[in-house]
Simulated assay, not measured.
Amino acid sequence: MGQIKKEGLSWYFVVELETDPLTGKRKRKKQRGFKQKKMLKKHSL
Results as ranks from 00 to 15, higher is better:
Met1Gln: 13
Gly2Ser: 13
Gly2Gln: 15
Gly2Tyr: 11
Gln3Asp: 15
Ile4Arg: 00
Ile4Ala: 07
Lys5Met: 08
Lys6Met: 10
Glu7Lys: 02
Glu7Ser: 02
Glu7Val: 01
Gly8Pro: 04
Gly8Phe: 00
Gly8Asn: 04
Gly8Cys: 05
Leu9His: 03
Leu9Phe: 03
Leu9Lys: 01
Leu9Ala: 01
Ser10Pro: 07
Ser10His: 02
Ser10Asp: 12
Trp11His: 01
Trp11Ser: 02
Trp11Met: 07
Trp11Glu: 09
Trp11Thr: 04
Tyr12Ile: 03
Phe13Pro: 05
Phe13Thr: 05
Phe13Lys: 00
Phe13Ile: 01
Val15Phe: 04
Glu16Val: 02
Leu17Lys: 15
Glu18His: 12
Glu18Leu: 13
Glu18Asn: 12
Thr19Lys: 14
Thr19Gln: 12
Asp20Ser: 07
Asp20Tyr: 07
Pro21Arg: 10
Pro21Val: 08
Leu22Phe: 10
Thr23Pro: 04
Thr23Lys: 07
Thr23Cys: 06
Gly24Tyr: 03
Gly24Pro: 02
Gly24Asn: 02
Lys25Tyr: 09
Lys25Cys: 08
Lys25Gly: 06
Arg26Trp: 05
Arg26Glu: 04
Lys27Gly: 09
Lys27Tyr: 08
Lys29Glu: 01
Lys30Met: 12
Lys30Tyr: 11
Lys30Glu: 14
Gln31Lys: 13
Gln31Cys: 14
Gln31Phe: 02
Gln31Tyr: 01
Gln31Asp: 14
Arg32Trp: 08
Arg32Gln: 06
Arg32Glu: 13
Arg32Leu: 14
Gly33Cys: 00
Gly33Asp: 00
Phe34Tyr: 03
Lys35Met: 04
Lys35Ala: 04
Lys35Ser: 06
Lys35His: 08
Gln36Pro: 02
Gln36Met: 07
Gln36Gly: 03
Lys37His: 01
Lys38Arg: 11
Lys38Asp: 08
Lys38Asn: 10
Lys38Ile: 12
Met39Pro: 13
Met39Gln: 15
Leu40Arg: 00
Leu40Ala: 07
Leu40Ile: 01
Leu40Thr: 04
Lys41Gly: 03
Lys41Asp: 09
Lys41Tyr: 10
Lys41Ser: 11
Lys42Ala: 13
His43Leu: 11
His43Val: 12
His43Tyr: 13
His43Pro: 08
Ser44Met: 14
Ser44Glu: 08
Leu45Met: 14
